[in-house]
Nucleic acid binder design. Structure first.
Lengths: 211, 211
DNA sequence: CAGCGTTCATACTGGTCGGTATGTTGCGAG
DNA sequence: CTCGCAACATACCGACCAGTATGAACGCTG
């Protein structure tokens, strides 16, 4: 049996992180059962507690190494776009279209964790806040760049708009869980895209203030 | 001790509902401890199981008799307003201002329950969906009335806007839990109010379509 | 006042969970 | 080859929790 090496600590750790992420996504962190994670990953309890000191530390590692990159990859395209409004609308369409049954049913892992853990655990709260700050700052930067280039209205407050947009996205995904259909999510995202259109600089406004 | 009658089944039931609501708000439904509810309410386990068949049925009763009226009272003012946009902005200001530490820290009970319970319990899902549908339909009605009266632009889709607005509100309250300060909530609500202003019919547009 | 059903009180049970103690084995260093 | 530590494996523990069994007491009815 040389094809499958019997000791692969890095791979064991990664498998645990991925299976823990899935279980936490399905059940939430507190209801996530270590036994379930062990069963789905084929790892034993001794191995788990060799790699992670406690369930909480496992949760922190999931946030740092799975949730954070996952969230960041979802908005990074905004930074490179020439027209951030169009890029944002494209991301909205993608999100509406590609969401599979699982994501509709269980929602956004990032938002789920904030809702469940931020009020009761400082370690989670700080990590999740940082992810949220980075996301918001990314949108702020994209909007400011758009304002400098004349594709975004100059009379909007970029930080307020960024917080508002993130709230709407996460709120829509969260509330969609109460529905069996995707109608609410799609409708809310149409509302968001209509709002994004209002952020465009009116043609002819040029470099001057709009009023 | 005739001042405090020793048998008051209705009052016992109501006390249980209120204490259960508080505990569920703090801990979520699954992590809510019956023992904690019993301690804070001064009721014994025998009394609880006399009034409610199970923890789940207690949760359903909390949704029907506490959460639902609480949510409805928050948006009912919209229905009677002559100018629904101004009324909505007033509600936003009120929400931003009056939210005490507890609500900032633990979020919206309604949104919390959807996030936690809708994916895993049909009874919760159906009840919460109905509350959300009513809320959304209330906003749709207010917007349509506003369109008929000429205070709201006619080129917006009322159902999309309603879903979008609710998403933004609940998303903002939820995400604010990851912060210690109210800055995110306040910023996001400013973004929402700026959006609400864009819904106003432009003066002079009169009864004609805007384009 | 007698009887009885509603209303509440107490003690207990079975099950699940996170965590630990202890033992075993692979595998690179020397 | 062997020594030693990292990397696992197994069995077990105490805590908590929803739910139940059983019984007591209140207060209305006749």
């Amino acid at each position: 049996m040389s094809t499958a090496a019997r000791r692969q600590p890095d791979r064991t750790r990664q498998t645990l992180l991925e299976c823990a992420f899935e279980e936490i996504h399905r059940s939430g962190f507190r209801a996530a059962s270590l036994d379930a994670i062990l069963e789905s990953s084929g790892v034993t309890k001794g191995a788990l507690y060799h790699h992670f000191g406690s369930k909480t530390e496992l949760g922190y590692a999931v946030v740092d190494e799975v949730v954070r990159p996952w969230v960041e990859s979802s908005w990074q395209p905004l930074l490179d776009a020439d027209d951030c409004v169009s890029a944002a609308i494209r991301l909205c369409e993608e999100l509406t279209r590609q969401r599979r049954a699982r994501a509709i049913e269980y929602g956004c892992p990032f938002n789920n964790l904030i809702n469940e853990m931020s009020p009761i655990d400082e370690g989670f709260r700080k990590r999740l806040q940082q992810i949220l700050d980075d996301w918001r700052n990314g949108i702020v930067a994209a909007l400011r760049k758009g304002q400098a280039r004349g594709v975004v209205r100059k009379d909007i407050a970029a930080d307020d708009a960024a917080a508002f947009i993130i709230s709407a996205v996460e709120g829509a995904i969260g509330l969609a869980k109460s529905k069996r259909s995707r109608e609410f999510l799609e409708s809310s995202m149409r509302g968001l895209m209509a709002y994004l259109e209002t952020l465009r600089a009116r043609p002819g406004a040029g470099h001057g203030a709009s009023r």
